[in-house]
Amino acid sequence: MLSFDDNGIYCKQANVYIDPWKPVDKAIITHAHSDHARWGMKHYLAVHNTIPVLRYRLGQDISIQGVDYGELFEMNGVRISLHPAGHIWGSAQVRLEYKSEVWVVSGDYKLQNDHISTPFELVPCHHFITESTFGLPIYNFPDVDTVHDDINAWWRQNKEEGKNSVILAYALGKAQRVINKLDVSIGDIYTHGAVDNINKLYEQQIGKLPLAKRIDASINTKDIQGAMIIAPPSADNTPWLKKLSPYKLAICSGWMQLRGARRRRGADRGFIMSDHCDWAQLNTAVKATGAENIYVTHGYKSIYAKWLQTEYGLNATEVETLYTGEQVEGETDITKEQQADEGI
């Protein structure tokens, strides 16, 4: 029912694309990360509470329709519904059913409960499209609460040493996840403008976050002491960041599982915190869907597909897409225009 063409993942019967990377007429968007939600579609469809972010990133004037999780709608006989993916708040998997054949496009997903996203819902299917960002057995993510405890302990320690704590986390999803569990009794929380913009949308759509002050012209950076600052990865090595000295720098990402990844970034600390599945989660999800046909997209595609074929006897194939996985290096969070806005 679905095929992969130059524009993206395509359903011919419904004449709709899912997360296309080139302009098309109709697009269902799994979530608002910029490698999945791109410009130029005539018409978008997404979960209600992700619409404000899509408008913020793609323009207020886009034509967009919202649906609820689980709400069933039809497109030329194809029964379609969106289900929680647990990746970031508002992220969805897309279920398509036609003539009793069921496909699920999972977009980006994780099984860990991050306490800000609606948890992943298992959707049984015949054909399952999965990412493989961390599709290697070396990736075993630690328990979520332990990581939050580690972050708070690190902040406390830095404060005692008279230093600020800076965490680089992408603005949509990770930043809210980190802030949500910060221990406000330790000190003040500040945010980079790009993070604050998304925080405001989160608070409108989902719920309250601990109080965090936006670093703008009204703030004297000299007053920021022993504080926690949340900034997007693009703020690294900028004059904006230098003004917060002395500080310790940490990165929150699944890539931090590898020593080399952290050292390359020159961060003091790497917290292993991801919005994607680790090895065990991937295997659990793939098996639980009951799907016989697995399409492996962005990540360690060929390795993971081979594993599914040889270990589970599944019909697994790798699919070339333009999705980029978990960003630490580059920046999918901020547009050029926004960077200009923030003066970074």
Binding site: L136, P137, I138, L258, G260, I303, K306, W307, T310
Partner: peptide, 22 residues
């Protein structure tokens, strides 16, 4: 399987670290 260790090692770049993670 052995091949998966080799793939992992290629990504990690250090045998001691690879084994630790596996």
């Amino acid at each position: 399987p052995q091949w998966l260790l080799e793939e992992s090692y290629h990504i990690v770049g250090d045998l001691a670290e690879t084994i630790t993670l596996l």
